[in-house]
Design a protein around this nucleic acid. Structure first.
Lengths: 188, 188, 188, 188
DNA sequence: AATGAATGAGGATTCATTCAT
DNA sequence: TATGAATGAATCCTCATTCAT
């Protein structure tokens, strides 16, 4: 209680966001009440509303960093174009897998809500990642028996980290390298 | 209206379940109101309550067939043991992929709600599928550089059908066959 | 309680409107709570909302009949043009005074809210009545020392009935007749 | 901001009252928030509460001068008794009309709230004015066909200035003089 | 003296569920 | 069997007011 009162504005804001994330992740946007978020943050609902003008705005603030980071960096990096095609593909895979692993709860949350609140979550990660992978695999000369199998293996690999997160960074790097080797070996 | 009145009890029950599925799939358990389900089914809310004693029970009835089917058949089939290891693996993959494709909306719905209502959705498909695949891959002698990569490719392939459904049955069969070939080719 | 349940839909609707009028008249739109209206009507708030989708809609329903009646009839009657100018003027005065007397509480309510909710109360009675009187007085050849004094006496007479209502119909008729006589006598 | 800080206590108090009047006149007592008043005055809500212990007290302070002035002066003047009856009547009329014109917004505000907060607005101007006029008219020997019509014309004339304000002081004086002439001319 | 931060109480509105017919 | 009518319990959000600095 006392320490709450001493928080700086920015810290308290983040504190509320954290509490909200906790609650939103536990249930869902609709199932989560502003009262429960306030309780989690150990503040009153009114205080919550001093920082965020509505439940929806709070929700946006929760997912915003992930939404913002998401595909920006990767697309910038790819446009710098210093990577050869194979490393481009590896970069995408690594980046996505790291991203998912680091933001596991939030990603789950976002995917869960994306159909429900399309106006809040304006684009579809998975679609866009799919498109990126498609282009990169082609450029890297990966030609399995058909394109579909290639892409399902690539995107599926990434998706697996949503359901089976992995924190060890080295493991993820190894995983990507081996995956690409296998795919290249099996190209026509 | 009139046709509603003529429905048999069982038919009407199913009619309500269908309507409920429609609505639950569109939003989420909490965001879906019993009023909207009744409207979708073109009946009154009270009638809905004559068939299902609560919203939760209706939800259970919606997902129950999928929940029931899910891994039952596959496990029975596997225990019959008439398949050689490789075909066992193929069978699991095909079965899961078909299952996901045929029940796509419901699967999405169930996955979305599994954290929210753990008491309603009592087990985790993906965990169990993962376990099945792990065993089958081992028996089939698939030994990629390490177990993790193998499993991520297998489970990831399946997961991809959640996000990228495919209705053509032949395609799915081909996909599985090719996937297994590749994996076997790359075994140590 | 029991009799409430037996009300027809239309009767109950009117019952709620009456209760709302009671409460709105007692305080004001903003100071009146939907809870207090429901209590006045001896129903639950939810029932209130079954009949009116919002407080604002209920408010509109309360004032609508008065708003609708208000100046329609008078303008139609005047256009029929069967009255000589003096009787036209008398007609306006009588009509307005009757109207105010019969709907005294509602008029007070509407005047009170007209500045506050201009979107709900879309036009200004008094302005329009003023305009009607101006034209009618001119046609009736009433020419006091100046136009302002004439109009203030006319409109003021009407306004007085807002603050000092009178139920006896004969009195009102007499009043109008005498008023017009005086004004005519004093015309230049 | 800076100038705010330099205000004397009394000046700031008045500054807040002015802001509050602005807001109360714009909407109504209940629809006006202390936050909006504070914003209008460009101070914090807490500061507002340093000057006025509650919203109600602030409201009282807003209307107090008008309430205080209202009928005090007039009654004192009348008791001095230096005026002949006709001029007494004229004095009342002029005084009331001037008063309404000079405090137009506040009068409107007070009339709007008088039913809502009878404890705050403890007496009824209009009733009291009516009583004053009744006595004065009688003393001035004005005897129209009946007392009611006389009084409605007198009080109605005053009321008209609430709905149709007039700023020109000469006009008002003329108006009163002419009104009284007419009434006297028509006395029995 | 002034305020940023905080809140208990309450307001409009919705929801799952029940009652009476 | 079917439903129109009804509601207690929440839900998001706002308001007047207070506390700590």
């Amino acid at each position: 209680m006392d320490k709450n009162k001493r928080m700086t504005k920015e810290k308290r804001r983040q504190h509320i966001i954290d509490a909200a994330m906790e609650r939103f992740a536990e249930s869902s946007y609709h199932a989560t009440t502003t009262a429960s978020i306030a309780k989690e943050a150990d503040i009153s609902e009114v205080t919550l509303y001093r920082y965020f003008s509505s439940k929806e705005e709070l929700f946006k603030a929760v997912i915003e960093p992930v939404l913002a980071e998401s595909l920006e960096k990767i697309e910038i990096k790819l446009q710098e174009n210093k990577l050869d095609p194979t490393n481009k593909l590896k970069y995408i895979l690594k980046n996505r897998i790291e991203f998912i692993s680091n933001n596991h709860r939030m990603i789950t949350l976002i995917l869960r809500e994306r159909n429900i609140n399309p106006e809040i979550i304006p684009f579809d990660y998975i679609e866009r990642t799919h498109a990126l992978l498609e282009k990169a695999a082609e450029e890297a000369g990966i030609k399995l028996i058909n394109k579909e199998i290639t892409l399902r293996m690539l995107i599926g690999s990434i998706l697996s980290f949503i359901y089976f997160p992995e924190s060890n960074s080295k493991s993820k790097e190894d995983y990507v390298n081996q995956l690409v080797v296998i795919l290249k070996n099996n190209s026509l």
